[in-house]
Design a protein around this nucleic acid. Structure first.
Lengths: 358, 358
DNA sequence: ACGGCCGTAGCAAGCGCTTTCTATGCGCTA
DNA sequence: TAGCGCATAGAAAGCGCTTGCTACGGCCGT
């Protein structure tokens, strides 16, 4: 069967306690003894039992990263960056490597229930930290449930970090999170719409993300604000369609928008993936980009620069944000003042937007 | 402090054993008693301690999924699909939900050391299953180390599944893996090159993936075979460049290839991302696609259909394969005959390839 | 030379749960 | 009515590890 600490101890002619101390390196052990133990570990191919260790020490080396959709690079990039700060490539030996943690990426699929399920699972594993990424669902009941869970996790010693998700505004919720990195969705969206307005566009269609999501709402609200400031607020509702964050949604929504307003000259999409779908629909309808219609996305995912024409979009520093979230989760970086940091969202103008026709 | 089983037992006026049995539902408990226990659990907001539970029951509900690059949708899609079969959206209660497991996505970054580190970490957690995705590194020493680790994991009761990775050819390695799903990289690559040859291309450049990777080798070998069959084998080496699986690599390599052979009429890329980089380089050099140069990718990632022109590529059913790997890992599906299944790789012809000029 | 200290190692008590085995009470049959 | 079995609950022994405390030398100081 599996080799236990006791087996190693027997072979090295020492007590289990000594073996444990050698492995953890947190207690003086004579060099000769350590040698002997290490050799025994090696001979027996001993591997620590994580559960037993965690149980006895009342600590866990699991860090959970919750994402809405792991197949979406938006989340993949953040998760990868976070994980790079968490599961350092350090030790691989039998003992627990210093500070090394195991990152768990949990795919909620955007479902509130699964989000809670995973939070419970992480709580059950006494996770050392939890990182929540992406927009939150705007359901008071669910928000409260999440806040309660996070409070409990924090209470149990877990560091909770929000990445690309607005800070919780609930009683107790604020105290629970160690830090929140919020994307400047409002600012980015505003700058994007202003860019289009400056180019002379007026009939600007908007393919929004799923309803009841903070990200969706923030971006849409800023779009509306910018439009209103330009005296174009009335047209916004009629030229807005909601849908999921996928290509299909951009395609379908754009066809629908063209039906509603054949004379539209610009389409702003919820994100780059959606924007690509919009491009496909426009081309299929014989509109050229950007000559007939300008298209803009959001996020600046790697492929956006490769679209034809290259996509004008709002860059979100996903990698940096993810890495920072990882560091915060590990306690390797001090939390920003007030626990909240705003991550910039800069406009990146490329070929898919141009002056409005006529 | 945290609520324990004993606390619940005290409140429900029963023994800890009874509480455990109610939670696990694997032993008859009188309805009235169960009620009482459940209410106590609820009142106290009790959450099972995963480590203690796992330790006592000698089972873990962790399933590891190793990927080379989580930011790459190629892996994201597989991982997501696998996870959907693993962490079912079932129970979220205090007890352990039936068969529910926690999927861990581990990002190796393509580094052999980290691959081994994660394998050790998973072994330490006594993972219930491990899924390895993507191409393997072709270093005998490393392969042996991985095979040994896998054997040990399997020995400890973990189900090992390979997804998109060729079966191990080492002693003991074969026995260790429960199942292997191998992409038909050879067939796909052959069909792709044959497609180009049929279109009349002769000067076909090849942007290969990283050296020392099974995926790279298999695809390249088949390309070479097809070229040789057409009497074009001599030119292959001169028109092949290796690089990582990213856009930059495709861009740089294509510039280099154009320098070597300004008259090339087709570029085959290691994957779709690389192909996009190649497209960018070609366009920058004033070549039109597919009129001047045809371009083809591999994998058929979602954005490939949206490139301009849409990318001809080889479709890998990533979602299906990932899901199947997940099911195999959960023991919910019987292993294929011989433990190895070949996943088809079909040619998808789109706009980026056309008859060779002149 | 003796007491005390420091450097090491071992003992043993858990960590919170699962599970085997045992105990109890009840309903049923003969 | 006595006997038996079944359904249900509890006692207790771990699972493999960590760690506070104790034990034991040898070395130092005075």
């Amino acid at each position: 069967m599996t080799v236990t600490l006791a087996d190693v101890a027997a072979r090295a002619q020492v007590s289990p306690a000594t073996v444990s101390r050698v492995l953890n390196g947190n207690y003086p052990v004579a060099a000769a003894t350590r040698e002997r133990v290490l050799r025994a570990v090696d001979d027996l191919d001993y591997v620590l039992n994580g559960q037993a260790s965690a149980l006895a020490a009342a600590t866990s080396d699991l860090v959970g990263i919750l994402v809405n959709d792991i197949a979406d690079p938006f989340f993949g990039i953040m998760a990868g960056a976070a994980q790079s700060q968490i599961g350092g490539p350090e030790g691989a030996g039998a003992g627990r490597a210093g500070g090394e943690k195991l990152a768990i990426v949990c795919n909620t699929g955007g479902s509130p229930e699964r989000e809670l399920t995973y939070l419970t699972l992480l709580q059950r594993q006494r996770a050392a930290a939890v990182i929540l990424t992406g927009g939150a669902i705007e359901d008071p009941e669910h928000s409260a449930a999440v806040a309660a869970k996070l409070a409990k996790l924090a209470d149990g010693g877990a560091r909770v970090v929000l990445c690309g998700r607005p800070p919780l505004e609930l009683p107790g919720g604020g105290e629970a999170v160690a830090a929140a990195l919020a994307f400047d969705n409002r600012g980015g969206a505003r700058r994007l719409t202003e860019h289009l307005l400056t180019l002379g566009h007026q009939r600007i269609a908007y393919v929004a993300g799923p309803v009841e999501r903070t990200t969706t709402r923030h971006r849409l609200e800023s779009h509306r604000d910018a439009m209103e400031a330009a005296g174009l607020g009335d047209a916004v509702d009629a030229l807005t369609v909601h849908g999921p964050y996928d290509r299909r949604s951009g395609y379908d929504a754009t066809l629908e928008l063209l039906r509603r307003e054949p004379a539209l000259t610009a389409v702003v999409a919820a994100n780059d993936t959606v924007a690509l779908g919009a491009c496909a629909a426009l081309r299929e309808q014989g509109r050229s980009i950007p000559d007939d219609v300008s298209v803009a996305g959001f996020d600046d995912l790697p492929f956006s620069a490769d679209a034809m024409p290259a996509l004008t979009t709002v860059r979100l520093p996903l990698h940096e944000a993810g890495a920072r979230a990882g560091r915060l989760a590990m306690g390797r970086e001090a939390a920003p003042a007030g626990g909240i940091a705003t991550v910039p969202a800069d406009l990146v103008v490329r070929g898919s937007t141009a002056a409005a026709r006529g």
